[in-house]
C-alpha cells in the first residue's frame, strides 16, 4: 500500500509546481529545438521536471528559478545525448569547431537588410536547426528567451567570453541562412529551385 504524502511533502510539491509549471511552454519549445521531435522533447521536459523536483531543496527562494530549471534542462539533454552516443559530443558542446575569427559578412545581405522581412517563422526554425548545437542553444537563450549573458553563462556552465563568441558566430550563421532563404523566395532577384 503506498505511503500517504507527509504535509511537508505536499507543501514542497505545491511550491515546486507554482514555480516550475509556468515555464513548461518555454522548456517544451527549447526541447523541441534540441531533440527535433515531439516524443523526445516530451521525455526531455518530463525528465527535467523530475530532476528539478528532486533537487528543489537546493534552489534558494528569491534567486532565478527560470535560469536554474533551464540549466537542468540543458544538463539533462547533454546526458541524454551522451547516453545515446549520438547527437553532439561533449567536445562539441564545449564549443569546439568554432571559427576563431569573424568571417566577412556576405555583402548582399548588408546591402539588402530588408531581405529578412521576407523570412517567416518556419525559415527561422529551419535556420535554428541548421546551427551547430552550441550555437543553437546560445541563440535560443539570448534571442528567444532573452536571458542576460551572465545567466546564459551560468546555464551553459561556460565563461561570458565564450557566450559572446558563440552568440556572435550563431547570429552570423543565422544571417547567412536567412539571407539564403530570402533569396530562394525571390528576394534580391534570384529564385532557386524549390527546396
Amino acid at each position: 500500500m503506498p505511503e500517504s504524502p507527509q504535509p511537508q511533502d505536499t507543501r514542497r510539491r505545491r511550491a515546486f509546481e507554482k514555480e516550475a509549471l509556468p515555464h513548461m511552454q518555454d522548456l517544451y519549445f527549447a526541447a523541441l529545438r534540441l531533440s527535433r521531435n515531439a516524443k523526445d522533447a516530451e521525455d526531455l521536459v518530463q525528465e527535467t521536471y523530475l530532476k528539478a523536483f528532486r533537487s528543489f531543496g537546493r534552489w534558494r527562494a528569491g534567486t532565478n528559478f527560470r535560469a536554474w530549471i533551464w540549466r537542468i534542462l540543458v544538463n539533462t539533454w547533454v546526458d541524454v545525448c551522451r547516453k545515446r552516443a549520438r547527437g553532439p559530443k561533449s567536445a562539441d558542446l564545449e564549443g569546439q569547431g568554432m571559427e576563431p575569427e569573424a568571417r566577412q559578412e556576405a555583402p548582399s545581405l548588408l546591402e539588402n537588410p530588408g531581405a529578412l522581412d521576407a523570412c517567416v517563422g518556419d525559415d527561422v526554425l529551419r535556420a535554428l536547426h541548421a546551427l551547430p548545437a552550441p550555437q543553437r542553444l546560445v541563440l535560443l537563450l539570448a534571442d528567444v528567451e532573452e536571458f542576460r549573458y551572465r545567466d546564459i553563462a551560468r546555464i551553459l556552465g561556460i565563461p561570458m567570453g565564450t557566450v559572446m563568441s558563440r552568440l556572435h558566430h550563431a547570429r552570423q550563421k543565422m544571417r547567412e541562412l536567412l539571407w539564403d532563404y530570402a533569396r530562394r523566395q525571390g528576394y534580391g532577384g534570384e529564385k532557386k529551385e524549390a527546396r
Binding site: V45, G121, L125, L128, D143, V144, R175
Partner: peptide, 18 residues
C-alpha cells in the same frame, strides 16, 4: 544587420502550446 537578425528571430518564433 545584427540587430535585424536578432529581431527577426524574436518576432518570428511562435512557441506551440505543449
Amino acid at each position: 544587420s545584427a540587430r535585424r537578425t536578432r529581431d527577426t528571430v524574436r518576432s518570428r518564433v511562435v512557441k506551440p502550446e505543449p
